[in-house]
Amino acid sequence: MTDSNADTARADAQRFRETYESIRAEVSRRMVGQADVIEGVLTALLAGGHVLLEGVPGLGKTMLVSSLGEALKLSFSRIQFTPDMMPADVRGTSVLVESEGGGHELQFEQGPIVANLVLADEINRATPKTQSALLEAMQERQLTIGRRTIKLDEPFCVMATQNPVEQEGTYPLPEAQLDRFLFKLVVGYPEEGDYREILRRTTGEQEVELSSVSNAETINAMRSTVRQVPVPEHAEDYAIRLVMGTQPGSAYAPELVNRYVSLGSSPRGAQALLLGAKVKALLAGRFAVATEDIAAVARPVLRHRVLLGFEGLSEGVTTDQVVDEVLAKLPVPQEAAG
C-alpha cells in the first residue's frame, strides 16, 4: 500500500470517467434521448458483458449499436437472425477452395460472430439451435468448430435486439442464453422534446458522421480498471441477498416472489450485479462499490433472470415489479446485522 498506488488508482478512475464521457457524447450525437439505454450499453460493454435490447421497432436499437461501433473504432458485424438461419451461418464453416497448384482444399471461413461488436438483430427470430451457436462465444469468448478453436479478440460484446410485440414465428431465448446477457435493457419511447431533434437529424440533408474516440486497447484498459474496484463486505452481502431474494423459498424472498416466481436468478446474476456496480461506482467518482450502485443495476441485471410462474403471468406481474419488491423488502446488511 503506497500513495503512488492510490494515485494510480485515482488517475485510472479519472481516465475512465473521461473516456466514458467522450464515448457517450459521441454516440449521443446520433442518438437522441435514450440516455439510460446508452449508459446501460456502455456500462455492460465496460463491465465485459453482453446486452439484450428489447423494444418495439423504430426506436433506434440497431442504430445505437452501429453508432457505438463507429465511435469505438471496433470491428463491427451485424447478423440479421431469420428462422432459416443455421449455426454455421453465425460461427462459420469450412469451404472447399481451389489451391494455387490446381488442387482443392478445405479452408475455414469464419462467420460474422468473429468481431468486436456483434449486433444480433432480432435474435428471437432464429431457431434455438442457431441461438445456441452464440452460447460458447458469449461465455468462453471462443469458438469451437470441429477440431478448430478460435479465440475471439477482446473486447467482444454481443448486443442482441428483440421485439417484444411480434411473438408469432419467434423463438423465445432459452434460459441459458438469457443468463449470459449481463443486462437486459428496455428501450422505451423517446420524450416529447426528443422527437423534434430526431426528425431534424434523420430527415435533413446532412447525415451525422461519427468519429472514433476510442479503440479496442482503451476499452480493454477500462475493463481492467473496472475489475480493480474493490467490493466491501456489506456490498457483497447485499448483492448475495438480492439474488437470493429472487429465489422462491429463500430466506430473503418476499411474499410476491414466493407466490409468482418459479425460477430466480443464478449466481451469475450476483456476478453481473457486482460488475455493473463497479462501473457505476467509478462513474460516481467513488473507489469502492456501495449498496446504492448494486441497487441501481438490479433491474437490468435481474429482470431477465427471473422466470415468472403461471400465476404470475396470469396476474400480469412483471419481472420489474418482482425486482422492485425484493429491493424494497430487502434490509440493508448493517440493519439486518443489528
Binding site: 500513495d3 488508482a9 480493480q228
Partner: peptide, 10 residues
Amino acid sequence: TGFQQAAVED
C-alpha cells in the same frame, strides 16, 4: 490495494 487506499483517503 490502490483503489482501497483511494477509498480510505476519499
